[in-house]
Design a protein around this nucleic acid. Structure first.
Lengths: 335, 335
DNA sequence: TTGAAAGCGCTAACAC
DNA sequence: GTGTTAGCGCTTTCAA
């Protein structure tokens, strides 16, 4: 059995109150006694029982990580895993643990881990979470941080990447290669990332005076198959684009397929830029130019933010945007 | 504040013991009273406080998921994420939660989440975990399940995929295409999966009477760069292979690069098969033939096993092997 | 500076 | 069938 406060107290012939105070660095213990308590604690391999502590403090030293099953459909390119791990690495530094749960649209709006007081805060990840669920949580006063999600016009603690800026840079780069008929293959417009990427693309086109040439296709998913279908529509149209900026790498790869099926070479006949920098992008031929997302950074910031909120739930909401980076490879036309 | 047993008891003018019994489906409560308890529990939105319950039962309804940072180096092809999610999905069905932690070689051999009594069992994932840590845990009597890991000659509850069988099938397929000089690029030999895949390859060669032609290169990592280097050695040797079976897809992709750098076409000059079926495999040109691993199945089985062990820690260890599947694409020479 | 004691919310004897 | 009560291990008043 694990050692308890009482074990230490007995051994030292003192009260458990003093032991508790010494172990928790609280005032009111002689420094010599404190040291002896610390020593015997180590000697006995004492580790505080979290259940007991939680019961009285109502603090669990745990944060919940909530994700929608759509966002991890056992796919081999799980966008949110690096974010999850970065969060864990940061939290563990502060003696916090992370509790995972997936939540689909049918799930009750109340999380069991919250009701059961298993977590001190929540990190809600991805755009597919039930909006009602998200709203109800951020208005509850419970510490909540959103990652790659942002509710309507309500302020919340969010961590996003600079989707708009990244898209702007991608489109501008294509324009720099001399293209004027640049199309966009976008994701679902109820995702904040899709909207921002679309907006960034539009802004770049407008700033280059190419507003009239804007052409965007939005689908309900962002898979390779979807990208292929969208690109097919574009390439088979009356005025096919000479360049495509896809809202993610998977769709860009699909677009490349559509191009290949029509005998079009990349980047000669069709220039291509994606978004994400998934591993396939690098190994593709030609290697795919794309926008890199700093997921570790996003995770780290999410972790820090939730800790701040837990320690001071009254803090005003902060929206954080992590910059992106254009990764130049060959699909855009660069040597 | 959340409702407690006492709130329900007061409202019904009964004792909290009766409430507890009714809520926990224990005998000794009149069925009419029981129903009234259930009703008021719902009415009051009662959810049991886990800390309080854990304190007395020393059960947490939580299992720990332990992974080595090497196995998720913020890579975009995180092998273990699908397994993690499959575990979560299965556990949530049984009202269990999953607590995540990463553990590197410097970490203390005792997990804080175990010492603090935060978890009822542990799922240890990946081959890079400190062997001492693994051994100490499986001999502790604490419920432990290993995934893609297996200690020396000690029996343990393990979930593996059929690495040997998959490798045998891959090599045999290459042999079927008429190749006789088939090389293997393997992973670190202290990984059980690498050893099994290597053994499967050797067995296939032997069964085909090609034992003398066996050629294997083992490196310390399994990245694309590593695969490229290994393939380079093989291709630049006196008797270069006409086919390569790589122990994972990333290395296969690297091998393809090495081939391309030497003007070799795939599968014409060099046939190639990988292992894993990562997303890049499908989009590669030519699409990569590989061995599919049923990760969701592995996760599900791990979850079920740990629950069994928690409910009966005395069960004898069971080793589970999930079959693999040859995914025929073009890099092997198939049309 | 230290100790005694109450109590967090729950389960599980033990009594009636 | 139902109530009383003793803790689980810890933090935190309140006294001394």
């Amino acid at each position: 059995m694990a050692a308890t406060l009482l074990d230490i107290a007995k051994k030292l012939n003192i009260s458990i109150a003093t032991v508790s105070r010494a172990l928790n660095d609280r005032p009111g213990v002689g420094s010599d006694l404190r040291q002896r308590v610390l020593d015997t604690a180590i000697e006995l391999g004492f580790v505080p029982n979290m259940a007991a502590r939680s019961l009285v403090t109502s603090r669990t030293q745990t944060v919940g990580f909530v994700i929608h099953p759509f966002d991890h459909p056992f796919s081999s390119d799980p966008f949110y895993f690096p974010i999850l791990m970065a969060i864990e690495v940061e939290l563990v530094t502060h003696d916090y643990h992370i509790m995972l749960t997936s939540l689909n649209s049918d799930s009750p709006i109340n999380l069991r881990m919250v009701d059961q007081s298993r977590v001190d805060g929540l990190i809600l990840v991805g755009p597919n979470l039930n909006p009602q669920f998200v709203t109800s949580n951020i208005t509850s006063g419970f510490p909540v941080v959103l990652v790659d999600n942002k509710p309507g016009h309500r302020k919340a603690n969010t961590i996003l990447c600079d989707d708009g800026g990244g898209a702007y840079e991608a489109a501008t780069h294509l324009i720099g290669h001399g293209h004027t008929r640049i199309a966009h293959i976008g994701g679902p417009l109820d995702w904040i990332s899709s909207r921002h990427r679309y907006a960034g693309y539009c802004a770049a086109m407008r700033d280059a005076g190419l507003e009239a040439n804007c052409r965007a296709v939005h689908k309900e998913s962002t898979t390779t198959a979807t990208g292929e279908k969208a690109a097919a529509e574009l390439l088979d149209s009356a005025e096919p684009p000479t360049a495509i900026f896809a809202a993610n790498d998977s769709m860009a790869l699909g677009a490349a397929r559509a191009a290949a099926a029509r005998g079009l070479t990349i980047p000669g006949d069709l220039a291509l830029i994606g978004f994400d920098n998934i591993s396939a992008a690098e190994h593709f031929s030609p290697p795919l130019t794309t926008i890199r997302i700093f997921k570790e950074q996003m995770g780290k910031l999410a972790a820090r933010r939730i800790l701040e909120l837990i320690n001071d739930p009254g803090m005003p909401p902060v929206e954080t945007s992590v910059s992106t980076e254009l990764v130049l490879r060959q699909s855009c036309g660069c040597a």
